[in-house]
Computed example of a mutant assay.
Amino acid sequence: MTELLTVYDQNFNKIGAEERAKVHTLGLWHAVVHCWVVSKREDGVWLWFQKRAHSKNAFPDYYDTAVGGHISAGETPQQALLRETGEELGLQLQPEQVELLGMTKEKEVFPESPFPDREFCFVYLYENPTPQFAPGEEVDDMIRIRLATFKGKELHELRQIPALSLSSGPLTLQPEMFCRHPGEFLHLILPKLEEET
């Protein structure tokens, strides 16, 4: 079955629907969801990231927000988020467990990407000290990074990023191993978490 995505103009006005492949090939504006999973524990505040499957067409083996996916035509952002969270992480969440923090507009064309990507992204937060992940086929691993460490990466260009993998334990990552979502962490996630502490 062909997946249809709602297409927008650059001001987020709906202008129709197109097949997902065409949306990407032509670089049309469309909508996606991201969910940042945060664990507040005795040993600090941790951010979770997924390692994208090696089989993915775009950014295989990169580290990305815990959940990310397209909003299908006729679907609300929250419906898409809950569906994607189940598919990617095996978490069956309820609407009241996630919080919408805002929307970002991404129009960068990255050299690593096989297509121009123009997205309106609805950014959500899910907090759980011990999430029980059961990753689906699109996710090869889940890692966690201390909030202070990721803040150093974003603000101070930290080059060596210590992390903990669910499958293999401690590892060190470099900034270029992450998908880039300009401003998302600094403008939405960090202010929210600092407000709570």
Rank of each mutant, 00 (worst) to 15 (best):
T2K: 14
V7R: 03
V7G: 04
Y8T: 08
D9H: 07
Q10K: 12
N11H: 15
N11I: 01
N11L: 14
F12H: 11
F12V: 00
K14D: 10
A17Y: 10
E18S: 10
E18G: 02
R20P: 01
K22D: 14
V23T: 02
L26V: 06
L26K: 08
L28K: 05
W29D: 02
A31F: 01
V32R: 15
H34D: 10
C35Q: 09
W36E: 13
V37Q: 05
V38A: 06
V38R: 02
S39V: 05
R41K: 09
E42N: 14
W46M: 10
W48D: 01
A53F: 00
S55N: 10
S55M: 03
S55Q: 14
A58P: 06
P60N: 11
P60E: 10
D61L: 09
D61S: 09
D61M: 12
T65A: 09
T65G: 08
A66M: 06
V67F: 12
V67A: 12
G69H: 00
H70G: 12
T76Q: 09
Q79I: 02
A80I: 02
L81H: 07
R83N: 04
G86M: 13
G90M: 09
L91R: 04
Q92I: 03
L93H: 07
E96Q: 15
Q97A: 09
V98D: 00
E99D: 14
E99L: 12
L100W: 07
L101F: 01
T104R: 07
K105N: 03
P111M: 09
E112M: 09
S113P: 05
P116F: 05
P116W: 07
R118M: 10
R118L: 08
E119P: 12
F122R: 04
L125T: 03
L125F: 00
L125S: 06
P129S: 04
P131K: 00
Q132S: 13
Q132M: 06
F133W: 07
F133K: 01
A134V: 10
P135I: 01
G136V: 01
G136K: 00
E137Y: 13
M142Q: 01
I143W: 01
I145E: 00
R146N: 05
A148C: 06
K151E: 13
E154Y: 13
E154Q: 07
E154S: 08
L155I: 13
L158T: 02
Q160H: 10
Q160P: 00
P162L: 06
P162V: 00
P162K: 01
A163D: 02
L164R: 07
L164F: 06
S165H: 03
S168L: 04
G169T: 05
G169F: 05
P170A: 03
L171Y: 04
L173T: 03
Q174I: 11
P175G: 09
E176V: 08
F178K: 00
H181S: 05
P182Q: 14
G183A: 04
E184R: 11
F185Q: 02
H187V: 08
I189C: 05
L190Q: 02
L190V: 04
K192I: 12
E195W: 00
E196R: 15
T197L: 13
T197P: 11
T197K: 14
T197Q: 13
